[in-house]
Nucleic acid binder design. Structure first.
Length: 944
DNA sequence: ATCCTCCCCTAC
DNA sequence: TAAGGTAGGGGAGGAT
């Protein structure tokens, strides 16, 4: 199979009926060209309507909506309904013309309104209506609707339905399915919903989707009743099959796609040429579902608590347990439409937000494959070898299939993944793609498209050509040809803004883009973006199939229904937003250090056209980096309050707010070693390690693996090797040095440090004789520390000044202090005995700070060439901080920290290391400051 | 030179 | 009755 050029030029997008167009905006069909012109005029800041923190692909239609004549909700809805009806008609006509998907018009004259969560979802029902001559109304109308479809509803809502529906039939969706199966319109009477009304409690919401997806499902359709998942077996399956899990996902958005399993935004050509397999869409036919059992953990409270996939289960923390119990007792408040009328607006909002759902696929994937990592070596992608398969496919159970066939899977969205098969045992990547697609279809009844090529870029483009339900192979020799006429917009990473900028430069195809030099592109678009454009236009993509699972930020934002009358309203909202973010952090098992508060401020008193929308807004953001990672809701609330104060904004102008947390660290103990920046855990680890080994000195290698200092870019591992080189000789009877029980002495010798101890209450642990000193270690110590060591020696055992030279090449006599006359040491800052400091450390910290000191030594040795630049500044910061501590009279931990820094100041001459320790200790101060200081006494924290 | 903050752009 | 989220990546400009 080879690439067929006839498909390469086919890059237009078929008009599609996406969920976007159905529910969000009446201006979906806005001409893109117009939008581009619009964007050209406004290109500085995000000025489009309804776009959250930066424009995106919807901004074009939103902009048109802003300029629409609708100024009230009534006209808005009228036009929206009209638009939706037109869409439906157009699609029905299209189906009818194609002939491929139309069936007997058994629903002629039937117009259904789907209320609430249904199984199958409304989109499925809509497709049946579409095929069989019926209609689906997106909004209820007494005049148009003939049947109301519900799966289950609370009694009260059914009564409401009955009252406003004027006696219209309220029936279960099985009526539709069975009619389709019977190929005739069945009586709706046996399907009346009131037969199950008494059972219908706790109608699943969008949130229930997550609970369902997190647990196996039964063969039958399930519905949530009384907080339990109950099998719903009343309706016969369609065409003898059962409704599979895809239906369950139908309460959601993109998971409720039609059976084709794809958004048809790609090429819809025939299946000749590049598509090596014919489409195999199995419209209306469902395969066997997955066998499973209901989860015993599934309770109504649990389901409610799963509103966000990032949120923790009830078992995550007591906080959440209380929350769930509370939800179970009180129940969710009725969702309202603005912050002014719903005290639980934040929580309720996310249960109803489709964009929220779309935006959380990453979290769902991470939860599904929480620990997937590569083990094999990275291999540079060869431009001459077919190595990458890009698969475009709906439900996440398909991830299992991918992982089964390939060890290198990179999920790039809820329905896309790359497979690096260059090292796979499968020789024929096209065959593998076929197998995966086949398994996919057999497992779910849904199709997938696949692209195979030399790299990620070309594989993705191949998938584009393969849609729908096909696969395409672009061999290396065809890359240039394929790209030559390809519109630049087809390249991933080029959105409407970049497209417009390039169009201004008369660049519309990749071939034209190739005419521009890399330097010019980088000058105009930045180094990386310019490089990307240059490479992509040539089919070059150096990226490796890799992981995307590492969570880098967690956040929540609401830009709809946000209205405040006064500061109290705003504070209430913010506090709830903090709760939401805190829960999401806990749900993701991470804590964060950088908190960014984003505010949408209405521009020039602009009023949104869209009901309760944010309208034309200026986007503002401020961030704070706190020293220690946290997910604590109270701390986050304090931080957020602090942040909010920095905006100096009239709350009446606020149209949206978001809180994002970055600089994340895992709370998973298994991952902590690489990431934790917590002095508490660090010290605890060091302490535990010390206790475990009952040793003095540096941690053993295995214990050192749990001790890390965050160096900013990566962890710094304490390396005890430096103390393992020379055995201690002539160990005296009272010597405090003990053997490192965790290290085999035969290989490395006694891994002892002669100076420091972590054993509490032993303050007299300094060596009493030079014989206790590991000379090799001593040589590597900072000069001043060496002096200190010698100072504790009994006078008669102190080395003479003249003997100092004998200590090694690093102790040149002209540089070394006179060991008998420490007050004459060059660079001596004061006369305080370092031994006194040393003792002070032991007394105040019970030995924990000696761990820090060990780091000092180790790191000083490793960075002996580091400059002293920045030392004074660091000390200055430290002093400011300490002053603040003292002023606030915070006693907790001050002493040990202060002592630590005093010690560091004297012992550490290497600024690089100082900053590392500073980064560890400073967070401790900051957190203590926030945690212990009464709010009324707090001055603005001096965050880093 | 490097890092940080405040954005903007993009994809889903 | 309506539900404009989430997160990664990058650029500009200033601080260090």
């Amino acid at each position: 199979m080879s690439f067929d050029s006839s498909r390469s030029a086919n890059s237009g997008s078929k008009s599609k009926r996406s969920f976007n167009s159905i529910s969000s905006n009446p201006s979906t069909n806005t001409n893109n060209g117009n939008n581009n012109n619009t964007n050209k005029k406004k290109k500085t800041t995000q000025k489009t309507l309804g776009v959250a923190w930066g424009s995106n692909s919807r901004s074009s239609s939103l902009f048109s909506f802003r300029n629409s004549p609708f100024s009230d909700f009534g006209s808005y809805m009228a036009v929206k309904n009209q638009k939706l009806q037109e869409q439906f008609d157009a699609e029905a006509l299209s189906s009818s013309n194609s002939g491929s998907t139309s069936g007997k018009p058994i629903f002629q004259g039937v117009s259904i309104f789907v209320d609430g969560f249904t199984v199958p979802p409304s989109q499925e029902l809509q497709s049946y209506m579409l095929r069989h001559g019926g209609r689906l109304e997106n909004y209820f109308s007494r005049h148009r609707v003939t049947h109301i479809i519900c799966s289950n509803l609370p009694d009260s809502k059914i009564k409401n339905l009955r009252s406003f529906s004027g006696g219209l039939p309220v029936v279960k969706p099985a009526w539709v399915l069975d009619s389709v199966a019977a190929n005739k319109l069945l009586s709706w009477l046996p399907y009346q919903l009131d037969q199950i009304a008494s059972e219908a409690h706790n109608q699943p919401k969008l949130s229930a989707f997550f609970a369902l997806k997190n647990s196996p499902v039964s063969n039958d359709t399930v519905t949530c009743m009384n907080g339990q998942i109950k099998s719903e077996t009343e309706h016969p399956s369609l065409e003898g099959g059962t409704i599979n899990e895809a239906h369950l996902s139908g309460g959601s958005m993109e998971h409720s796609r039609p059976c084709s399993g794809e958004w048809d935004d790609g090429v819809h050509g025939n299946s000749t040429g590049t598509v090596i397999e014919e489409p195999t869409c199995n419209d209306g036919k469902y395969s066997e579902g997955k066998t499973a059992e209901p989860s015993i953990h599934r309770s109504s409270a649990g389901i409610e608590d799963q509103a966000s996939p990032c949120r923790p289960s009830a078992s995550v923390s007591s906080h959440n347990t209380k929350r769930s119990i509370s939800s179970a007792i009180v129940g969710p408040s009725k969702p309202q439409h603005s912050t002014l009328v719903d005290p639980n607006f934040v929580e309720n909002y996310f249960k109803s937000s489709r964009l929220h759902f779309i935006g959380t696929w990453r979290s769902r994937y991470r939860k599904r494959f929480p620990s997937f990592k590569y083990t094999g070596p990275d291999v540079k992608v060869s431009s001459l070898r077919t190595s990458v398969i890009h698969v475009d496919m709906v439900a996440d159970q398909f991830y299992n299939i991918l992982h089964k066939h390939c060890s290198k899977v990179q999920v790039v969205s809820c329905d896309e993944a790359f497979l690096d098969v260059i090292e796979s045992e499968v020789e024929d990547s096209q065959l593998l793609a076929s197998v995966i697609r086949k398994e996919r279809f057999e497992a779910t009844g849904c199709t997938a498209s696949a692209g195979i090529s030399t790299n990620l870029l070309m594989a993705r483009l191949a998938t584009r050509a393969a849609k729908p339900d096909g696969q395409c192979y672009i061999p290396p020799e065809k890359v240039d040809y394929y790209l030559h006429e390809l519109p630049i917009k087809a390249l991933p990473g080029i959105g409407h803004v970049l497209e417009e900028k390039l169009k201004v430069r008369q660049i519309q195809t990749c071939g034209q883009l190739r005419m521009i030099s890399k330097e010019s592109l980088q000058k105009d678009f930045g180094i990386r973006t310019g490089d990307m454009l240059w490479k992509y236009s040539r089919g070059i993509d150096d990226r490796l199939v890799g992981l995307v699972q590492e969570c880098k930020s967690v956040g929540a934002e609401v830009n709809w229904g946000v209205r405040f009358n006064d500061l109290k309203d705003c504070q209430h909202f913010l506090m709830n937003l903090c709760k939401e973010v805190s829960l999401r952090l806990q749900g993701c098992m991470v804590q964060g250090r950088c908190f960014t508060l984003k505010i949408k401020k209405r521009r020039n008193d602009a009023e949104p056209v869209k009901y309760m929308g944010c309208g034309d807004c200026e986007n503002l953001s401020h961030s704070i980096t706190v020293p220690m990672a946290t997910d604590d809701v109270e701390l986050i609330q304090r931080i957020t309050t602090q942040l909010f104060g920095s905006f100096h904004i009239d709350v009446k102008d606020i149209r949206g707010m978001g809180l994002q947390v970055s600089k994340l660290e895992s709370v998973d103990p298994a991952k902590q070693g690489h990431e934790r920046n917590s002095i508490r855990s660090w010290l605890a680890s060091a302490s535990a390690s010390t206790k475990e080994h009952s040793k003095i000195g540096f941690p053993a290698k295995e214990s050192a693996s749990r001790v890390a200092i965050n160096e900013g870019k990566g962890p710094f591992w304490l390396d005890p090797a430096c103390v393992n080189e020379s055995p201690v000789e002539d160990k005296e009877e009272n010597c405090p040095v003990e053997k490192n029980q965790g290290e085999p002495t035969s290989e490395a010798g006694p891994s002892n440090s002669v100076f420091f101890t972590s054993v509490p209450n032993k303050i007299d642990l300094m060596p009493s004789s030079l014989s206790q000193v590991d000379i090799s270690v001593l040589h590597q110590l900072p000069k001043e520390l060496r002096v200190d060591i010698f100072e504790v020696f009994p006078a008669h055992r102190r080395p003479e000044c003249t003997s100092d030279a004998a200590l090694g090449p690093t102790s040149k006599s002209e540089e070394s202090p006179c060991l008998k006359c420490p007050e004459k040491r060059p660079g001596s800052m004061n006369s305080v005995s370092r031994n006194e400091l040393w003792l002070e450390i032991h007394q105040s910290s019970k030995g924990r700070l000696s761990s820090i000191l060990q780091c000092t030594l180790s790191e000083s040795e490793l960075h002996s060439d580091a400059s002293n630049d920045g030392w004074d500044d660091a000390i200055g910061c430290l002093c400011d901080l300490l002053r603040q501590y003292i002023r606030l009279q915070i006693e907790t931990d001050i002493e040990e920290i202060y002592v630590c820094f005093r010690l560091l100041r004297r012992f550490t001459t290497k600024s690089k290391f100082f900053f590392q320790v500073y980064n560890v200790v400073f967070p401790h101060l900051q957190l203590s400051l926030l945690a212990y200081c009464p709010e009324e006494r707090r001055s603005p924290p001096c965050f880093t």
